[in-house]
């Protein structure tokens, strides 16, 4: 009882926004734009559910294009960041070389520079390389915050892997490279997965770079597209907005639920010998 009651309250608190999204996206406009104190009006459910918002979103807007854009950008930038992060994290936690400590801190500090500041010089770079309004503008700029993030997560994880594993592999006849490939990386899979999920989520939800570097409607990502094209002037298309937000969060939800065990192990567990 003392466990379930707070748990229920917590769940209610967390899930209510999603419920609100669902209910808004299937509520007909006639109900949506009625005053809150109208007679026979209950904001918590609807008696006349409709697919018109979802259909409108998928057929009349560029939402599916945005989804593909976002997916492509998020996957590419996650892949780049993971590869860099895993190697950098391994090097910083395992190899001893001059300034390793300073380098680690330096990478961490770059993560702390706010994006709202960083987008100004980055915009200059994007323009110089003629990358503006292409997915590459984001694929190449997201790693600026994803790589430090992945590197630090992986550093922590690699430190928890007993160094005897690698030493043993090297005595067994593996080169450093082979030891990393066959022993360290497989052992670090939970850590790599968590870093990947986090990086994916961060780039999926990223707003400011996407807003600044992309301008054509067919290049936009979901967060930017939904907020810029579904609010026309001062008119909020609440039904479509909510449907867009809901559909837009599905890939992330799938990613989390699919890897949840590895992900939790990556954050909390270490490797036992």
């Amino acid at each position: 009882m003392f466990f379930y009651l707070p748990m229920a309250f917590f769940l209610l608190f967390l899930l209510f926004p999603f419920y609100w999204m669902v209910i808004t996206s299937i509520r007909p406009d006639s109900e949506l734009y009625r005053p809150w104190n109208a007679i026979n009006y209950n904001p918590f459910w609807t008696t006349r559910p409709t697919w018109e918002h979802v259909r409108g979103l998928l057929l009349e807007t560029l939402f599916t294009t945005w989804m593909w854009n976002t997916m492509f950008i998020a996957l590419m930038s996650t892949a780049i960041s993971l590869v860099c992060g895993v190697f950098a994290g391994y090097a910083l936690s395992r190899l001893s070389f001059p300034f390793a400590g300073g380098l680690g801190t330096g990478i961490f500090i770059t993560y702390l520079v706010p994006q709202t500041l960083l987008f100004i010089p980055l915009a200059e770079i994007i323009r110089n390389y003629n990358l503006g309004d292409t997915p590459w503008a984001l694929i190449l700029t997201y790693p600026t915050f994803l790589i430090p993030f992945c590197t630090w997560l992986m550093m922590g994880y690699f430190k928890a892997v007993p160094k005897e594993l690698e030493e043993c592999a090297r005595i067994d006849g593996a080169s450093r490279w082979q030891a990393m490939l066959y022993i360290i990386i497989p052992v670090a899979i939970p850590g790599i997965l968590s870093a990947g999920i986090f990086a994916f989520t961060l780039s999926w939800n990223e707003f400011i770079y996407a807003l600044v570097f992309l301008s054509s409607p067919d290049q936009k990502t979901v967060p930017v597209g939904v907020t810029s094209d579904l609010i026309r002037g001062d008119v909020f298309f609440w039904g479509q907005l909510m449907a867009g937000a809901l559909l837009g969060s599905i890939p992330v939800a799938i990613a989390y639920s699919f890897f949840v065990e590895h992900y939790v192990a990556g954050l909390t567990g270490s490797v036992k010998g």
Partner: peptide, 20 residues
């Protein structure tokens, strides 16, 4: 010589078995 070229085998305190 690198460890691999010394033709030795080592047993560690924490066994260092490859967990995967």
């Amino acid at each position: 010589l690198a460890p691999m070229d010394r033709d030795i085998a080592m047993v560690f305190q924490n066994y260092a078995l490859y967990p995967h």
